[in-house]
């Protein structure tokens, strides 16, 4: 399979967010990185497009994303004070959605910064 080359890719492993990385990918995995440090290289090479984990788990058992989304909504609505936490390894767009969701369910929103 031909390799696709992505130039000026952005590495999100650490706070440096280097945006000058070159990635060579074969569709399933990244086989080569240029300009990345050792941490960045293992970050890029250790994540593949394989289906390694179940789409979703409910009480430890494989489930569909639809069912998991539904269960999530129920738990958040039922709670008096739900917490939305983390937000470090997600995009700003997801963070923005998470803030809106926290407001909708009248909860608390927090990130790694508070540690």
């Amino acid at each position: 399979m031909d390799l696709t080359v992505v130039k000026n890719a952005t590495c999100t492993f650490c706070g440096c967010v280097c945006d000058d990385i070159e990635l060579h990918a074969d569709g399933v995995r990244i086989v080569k990185t240029k300009s990345a440090c050792s941490l960045g290289e293992s970050w890029f090479k250790n994540h593949t497009a394989e289906h390694l984990y179940p789409d979703a788990l409910i009480d430890g058992k494989p489930a569909t994303v639809d069912a998991a989304v539904d269960a999530t909504a129920d738990y958040l609505i039922k709670a008096n004070m739900p917490l939305v936490y983390g937000l470090s390894n997600v995009t700003c767009e997801a963070q923005r959605g998470a803030v809106a969701l926290a407001e909708m369910v009248a909860g608390v929103i927090d990130s790694h910064t508070s540690l």
Partner: peptide, 27 residues
């Protein structure tokens, strides 16, 4: 440290006025 922890501060600042640990229970 982590990739977009700075983004979390920024997004919470412009949506809520505070950078982290924001309680929205009272609306």
């Amino acid at each position: 440290g982590h990739g977009n922890v700075t983004g979390a501060d920024v997004v919470m600042r412009w949506t809520t006025g505070y950078p982290f640990g924001v309680n929205l229970c009272r609306g």
